[in-house]
Nucleic acid binder design. Sequence first.
DNA 1: CCTATTGGTAAGTATTGACTTACTGAGTAA
DNA 2: TTACTCAGTAAGTCAATACTTACCAATAGG
Lengths: 101, 101
Amino acid sequence: MTYGNKIEALGPPTRRAIFERLAAGPLPVGKLAETLPVSRPAVSQHLKALKAAGLVTETREGTARIYRVDPTGVAELRDYFDRFWDVALGAYKRSLEGGDA
Amino acid sequence: MTYGNKIEALGPPTRRAIFERLAAGPLPVGKLAETLPVSRPAVSQHLKALKAAGLVTETREGTARIYRVDPTGVAELRDYFDRFWDVALGAYKRSLEGGDA
DNA sequence: CCTATTGGTAAGTATTGACTTACTGAGTAA
DNA sequence: TTACTCAGTAAGTCAATACTTACCAATAGG
């Protein structure tokens, strides 16, 4: 639920690939698996992790499960790196000017 | 070197902790290890990974190695999530309006 | 030179976790 | 009910990796 969990959730390349495909538009598990070099259960497991991290949402349509990127989750990551960038840049400038350690 | 490698590099909690400590200001390996529940070699190994990902830089001062967050690397991540957020939000809106599966 | 400080590297271990093949379940339609 | 579709779950395997201790390299100072 925190940004840390989100970053961690996006670490594995396959999971990031799933996430980026969903960014283009909602997809059911099967369609998602077709475009990936792993099995459908593997995709399901990754989706479970992404959902737990608050990065995707799930809706049901008949027997299908449609997954979408959760914009709120992405915003949280974006904001984190925004703030982080400010802090890091500040520290960097200080370290150059001050000659401090 | 790509954003993917950067995200992956920030996955492990200990490595993220190192990175965030460095965001506050430059530190040598030893000082860094003092504040963490892992050994100094472990910190060295994490720093190696962060450096390879383009997230930190290293400068030498005598026998010490000073590590700093590389603002360029952070900016890359920030920009990635900025763009990603736009795309994801667009897809989200479309999926709500269009009712397109 | 010898010693101390600082930190990277090697090697081994042990846990994590990404993936597979079953299977189970839930919804739809004849 | 039976059968078909779509997808989550269980269980097991195998590779990746985060960590440890021991060792080695380089610089600074006596």
